[in-house]
Design a protein around this nucleic acid. Sequence first.
DNA 1: CGCTGGGTTGATGGCGATCAATCAATGTGG
DNA 2: CCACATTGATTGATCGCCATCAACCCAGCG
Lengths: 253, 253
Amino acid sequence: MSKAKPIDILIASLEQIEPLDQQDRDLLAGLDLRFRRFSANNEIVRSRTSPGESCFIVAGFAARAQYLADGGRQLDQIHVIGDFVDLHSLHLRQMDHSVIAIGPCDVAFIRHDELVSTMAHSPRLTWLLWQLTVLDGAVARTWMTCLGRRRAEAALAHLICELLTRLRRLGAAPSNRFHIPATQTDLADMLGVSTVHVNRSLAELRARRLLTWSRHEVHVLDFERLALIADFDNSYLEPGNPMPKYFQQFVTS
Amino acid sequence: MSKAKPIDILIASLEQIEPLDQQDRDLLAGLDLRFRRFSANNEIVRSRTSPGESCFIVAGFAARAQYLADGGRQLDQIHVIGDFVDLHSLHLRQMDHSVIAIGPCDVAFIRHDELVSTMAHSPRLTWLLWQLTVLDGAVARTWMTCLGRRRAEAALAHLICELLTRLRRLGAAPSNRFHIPATQTDLADMLGVSTVHVNRSLAELRARRLLTWSRHEVHVLDFERLALIADFDNSYLEPGNPMPKYFQQFVTS
DNA sequence: CGCTGGGTTGATGGCGATCAATCAATGTGG
DNA sequence: CCACATTGATTGATCGCCATCAACCCAGCG
């Protein structure tokens, strides 16, 4: 685990879903990666463009953002290390959203043609990458329910539960503490409320002694109760179905 | 087009993205379909189950729904004829949402094993089905922005613009009129507001002479202005990238 | 006919927006 | 080392969107 190469981060992320065989790992390890560091609020992928590469997060946090005519923005989803944030561009003729850095963020890019030929050699990787986009949809739907039907405090609690659950799985949240460089402005754009209201919702969670959040350091004091007021159910974060056998047996046409 | 068999509806839907060759059409035509009619508010696919089949809409409307602990629900997306609404269950170990009928709805089910072996014979169908799930995500993100950052009236206008755009493409909205059996309660659960407020937002749109909506018959009078207040941009509804050549050349391992 | 589900309208109140001020932390140039 | 600027967090005051409760209408239907 120490001195993990960037590609190992992606491999580990995929193996959370399903174990890879050595051949798949070799295929991935053979990929030609381009690296770049972004600082807060910079665009990793720009809306309305047609990138020739997809990217995953090597370090830090990123988010998907849609911009409005009035200059406002909605953050749809927050992504953590290992997330293949821009698999979508493989299929989208034009990006419907931007991917932006939340705090400093290291990103690895893979050219689409390389990605495709890798998949052509591995039904399992094809299946897994497809699945990533489907699981992504489940996260999106869950967040929609927060936006549409929960009050800001509950939605914020839900977001924190989700982040903690995901980071804990990566071993990045020892004793329910984690670092996240998001500002209250970022949270406001995520929750669809004003920064002032985020501040008050957060103050309320603190007052209830459910968590502390200071200087970008979050400490969840009572996950159980936090999950309760958030109406949080982690099953949407679970891995999906393993690849069916039949999928393996591709026939060259 | 007349007397279309149910599978032709799916084929037409896929060919909106990319033309199929005869072999792919034959593969689809050979699928064993199970049909069932649902009436309003009945569950086509139930949340938290693990279906062994996926389904597409043959006639009518359906929606994805997530339920809350307090008994409320959020409708995440409305689906129309030809939509492969439940491709997700192929990948999800457990459904994170229900699919319910909005008004009477005819649905065709395909067993997962059949679907998978069909894909195993056609990289193009694999690519297209994957793409459907990705495009689905783009629609979801766009709706999130409506939920988070638009007032009810604008969000409602946006929803109507989306429906009209999709139905027009299917030839199901002659002269900007279409039928939809959704009640104001359904719209409220979609928009994340109360039925009373839906009623008032709708009244406002009528007062501005942008549309009429009565007895489940919608007539959009001024699409341009409706799109303007909705901040509607249809590009997220466009087809995605065609299958890259390399994807074709699967290697049997 | 009365019942029922949906649509419409009014009154009242709360959540959250907006404007504004203050404060804490950090950075910058002199 | 200190004035000054900048960024983000916090708090108060006021306002508006939308929830909630309640009544009423209307069409379809047994």
